[in-house]
Design a protein around this nucleic acid. Sequence first.
DNA 1: TGATATATTGAATTTAAATTCAATGAACTT
DNA 2: AAGTTCATTGAATTTAAATTCAATATATCA
Lengths: 197, 197
Amino acid sequence: MPTRDEQKEQRRQLIIFKALELFAKKGYSDTKIGDIAKAADMSVGLMFHYFESKEQLYEELVRMGVEGTNQPMEMNFSNPLDYFTGFLKVMLGYAKEQPWVFYMFVLMAQARRSDGIPAHIKELAMSVNQIEQSAEIIAAGQQYGYFREGDPYALSFAFWSSVQGVMEQIAVTPEMLSGEKELPRAQWIIDIIRGAK
Amino acid sequence: MPTRDEQKEQRRQLIIFKALELFAKKGYSDTKIGDIAKAADMSVGLMFHYFESKEQLYEELVRMGVEGTNQPMEMNFSNPLDYFTGFLKVMLGYAKEQPWVFYMFVLMAQARRSDGIPAHIKELAMSVNQIEQSAEIIAAGQQYGYFREGDPYALSFAFWSSVQGVMEQIAVTPEMLSGEKELPRAQWIIDIIRGAK
DNA sequence: TGATATATTGAATTTAAATTCAATGAACTT
DNA sequence: AAGTTCATTGAATTTAAATTCAATATATCA
């Protein structure tokens, strides 16, 4: 049987994952501590035994997100387009199988964009801003014809904003996650930056 | 000089437009009545002289959005792709010049998606759901090669979710609205449904 | 086992935001 | 110009949600 400390850690993990899902689906402000408590099947008061505040719980999630993002996907790409394709395929695959990865992406994107999120957490989330980084990749790749013409920052902005839009909409559309409806294909979104051939 | 009734109507309009901008930028829950009051330069109490509640103010905006959307753009399109291109060009153009049209699009999309919005308003907003309608246009157009292959609903879903993502990100990025940074181009987003040629 | 520490609850308390209200001043009406 | 109605404010009140707390149960441990 697990020790008390292990129990506690498991309980924390349970809260973390339930909260992740709710925050991703509903956003920070619309997710009530009571919602999380119910999802984790415990009293509201007990939530505060595990986390000192809603804010701190959210911050812990964002920290996880930052760390996860900083571990670069350890794959080799034959060309820079595959970087984007690979990312999208992974994310769309996880949407059904391991939704937490997918929820984490949505949460991080929201944390950067939403108002109502404490400033210091927003900054934390901003530290992994794909738009800036991808703009450089795109600028470099354009010289070899991997990407369409156009302002690299605007292209990157269009790509990542679209990705966020799609992921967020998937998150709130149960038919997508259950598989009753077909998911968008990575290639479709990639064509924003690849352009017509 | 304007009559008292005209004054009142103008004041209402002012509130409406300030609220539209704030709701679009911050979302329903994160927009406080106090924020709107400050933007319209009046006391919080006075807001309730003009609107009976935050909810009712929001509902009025959604009604405006529904009506606006139901007046179909009176343009002739030589092919169905132009329908989407035309829409995007208008919306991106308005982002800088007449942002209220643009904010209205963002608000309507949020109203459909967000939690925390009263159910009856959500339904109202749902009554103009581009995804369903565009799926039919896409299905029809695919037979003539206007759109890429693939499940029409998923294509429509990808397109409109992307558009929402882009518009929402523009709304919260002042450099975009002020013109310091280039906006995404309509063609880029269209390629989601048009595909590589 | 008895003593101590941790987990859990449900009932306060606090806080922030929405909403109501009584009072005041400005504008319209006759 | 007196009387009535509307606009406006700032100060209550209400409400919903976060947070704290005292009390109880359960587990650990000497």
